[in-house]
């Protein structure tokens, strides 16, 4: 299946080592920018915290556990692997992840993958 790319914001809308939230077709997506490289280290995951049951993931703190880049939910502090969406503490909880890329000054999220 082919990926459809959507512009969601400008690269200068992202906050280094922190998150913002985009709305795409009614879906809330948390977008994180890790590190200062202009077009790397950007992740897009579901903004809904399955444990806290609230749309808050983008307000979590970024960090690393071993070699995984993770975000800690601001409500109950469980960690999600930003690359796979998997919850480190309870692997049965998983955030949906989206492909994300930079085109010029735009951040794009891909849908219709897999």
């Amino acid at each position: 299946m082919s990926i459809e790319w959507h512009n969601v914001c400008g690269t200068d809308d992202l906050v280094i080592n922190s998150g913002v939230c985009a709305l795409l077709n009614g879906q809330q997506i948390a977008i994180f920018k890790v590190g200062t490289a202009p077009d790397a280290g950007i992740y897009a995951v579901d903004n809904f915290d399955p444990q806290g049951k609230a749309q808050v993931i983008y307000r979590g703190i970024i960090g690393s556990i071993g070699d995984k880049t993770v975000v800690a939910s601001p409500l109950y502090k469980q960690h999600f692997d930003l690359a796979s969406g998997e919850c480190i503490e309870s692997p049965d909880q998983k955030l949906q992840v989206w492909p994300v890329r930079v085109q010029g000054n735009s951040v794009q999220i891909g849908t219709g993958a897999n």
Partner: peptide, 30 residues
């Protein structure tokens, strides 16, 4: 590593107690 939700706020707090910069300044916000 990158730090985490334990050390980042702790260091943020130490920086604030020591230098007392605005906590939402670019370097401190995350």
């Amino acid at each position: 590593g990158l730090g985490c939700d334990i050390c980042k706020p702790a260091v943020g707090s130490i920086l604030a107690s020591t230098w007392n910069d605005y906590i939402l300044e670019k370097d401190h916000v995350s």
